[in-house]
């Protein structure tokens, strides 16, 4: 630096805001004609910023390390945070393994969609029992690639119907181990010619979950504090698990009701921090995406869950299926 100590001090005082108003005015006037002085000022301003950042980084780093070490108590985790709530349904490993013994369920009849917004769907009578029966009898095999191709076509041509045979909001679908259930008049509506109805036997067989919980607005989910939650969750470590996350209370409430209704074990984490902590190793997820679910399917098709066959349905428009070892197929 070619500046003198005296000039350096002036720059330093200017950057630190120690000059009086008149001194500052004179300094700025001088600076406007002196590129080197400008450079010195810029350099010292950068120095201030960098030194401040180093201190700030170190504070953030300290919190991060405490956080990584699990610094918050369970109670704190339970109490803090109002973000995402995770609703977790745990499928018993044994049920999962013994699915074949339990398959070939009777599927409840499904009514047409009642939404006034979707009259095309509304007019389609659907009977999933029949669909399943037909699909099974024809031994239809739907590979993942076929489904992806289906989705690609849909993406390319907006008039190509989506998996639900409609162009708007998908039906609300729940799945129980031995039947599709209509929880209430709006809960399940699946057009008989939609792809999802063909997949139902596969879903039965693979015991993967399909979930979409968008329903009529409900009261915000009641947050449940479960005693011994961590212990309970750890005891299911080997279980096949589906977890649902969303920040909308009504969606979570519906998910919670759905799983309860299906008679599955479920765990509710009071906040996302706690849930992520508990379930950091879980690879299988049902995600409720936002608007562009079709695109999500295509872009995320490489996602390979580690533990179980995986079916994902978003709250709006699409289905995602990922295989593990073999294509999903509908067997006789």
């Amino acid at each position: 630096m070619r500046s003198s100590l005296e000039q350096f001090e002036r720059v330093s005082d200017y950057v630190s805001g120690k000059l009086t108003e008149s001194q500052r005015g004179l300094f700025e006037l001088e600076m406007s004609n002196d590129p080197f002085l400008q450079e010195q000022v810029a350099f010292q301003k950068d120095m201030v910023r960098v030194v401040e950042r180093r201190a700030l980084r170190s504070e953030i780093g300290a919190v991060a390390s405490v956080y990584a070490a699990g610094g918050m108590s369970l109670l704190t985790k339970l109490l803090l945070g109002t973000g995402s709530v995770l609703v977790i349904g745990v499928l018993s490993y044994f049920i999962f393994m013994n699915q074949k013994a339990e398959q070939k369920p009777q599927v409840a009849s499904v009514e047409k969609a009642k939404s006034e917004e979707h009259s095309s769907v509304k007019n389609e009578q659907a009977n999933i029992g029949e669909s399943k029966s037909e699909a099974t009898s024809t031994s239809h095999v739907m590979s993942v690639d076929e489904i992806v191709e289906f989705m690609r076509k849909q993406a390319q041509n907006p008039s190509f119907p989506n998996l639900y045979g409609s162009f708007m909001t998908p039906p609300l679908l729940g799945y129980k181990k031995d039947s599709l259930i209509r929880a209430n008049s709006d809960f399940v509506s699946i057009p008989s010619d939609s792809l999802i109805s063909e997949l139902l036997p596969t879903i039965e067989q693979k015991r993967a979950y399909v979930g979409s919980w968008r329903n009529k607005p409900m009261t915000r989910a009641k947050i449940v504090k479960i005693k011994g939650l961590r212990k309970q969750v750890k005891s299911h470590k080997k279980a096949a698990t589906v977890y649902v996350t969303d920040e909308e209370g009504n969606i979570l409430n519906n998910a919670k009701m759905t799983y309860s209704y299906f008679g599955e074990q479920r765990t509710v984490a009071i906040n996302g921090v706690y849930a992520f902590d508990l379930y950091s190793e879980i690879k299988t997820t049902v995600v409720i995406e936002l608007e562009n679910g079709d695109k999500a399917l295509i872009e995320n098709v490489d996602f390979k869950p580690k533990y179980i066959t995986y079916i994902e349905i978003d709250g709006y428009s699409t289905t995602k299926i990922v295989k593990r070892d073999q294509d999903i197929s509908i067997e006789k």
Binding site: I60, Y67, L80, G83, G272, V273, F276, S280
Partner: peptide
């Protein structure tokens, strides 16, 4: 407090 958002 803000670090609680980290996992998500």
């Amino acid at each position: 407090f803000l670090y609680q958002e980290f996992p998500k």
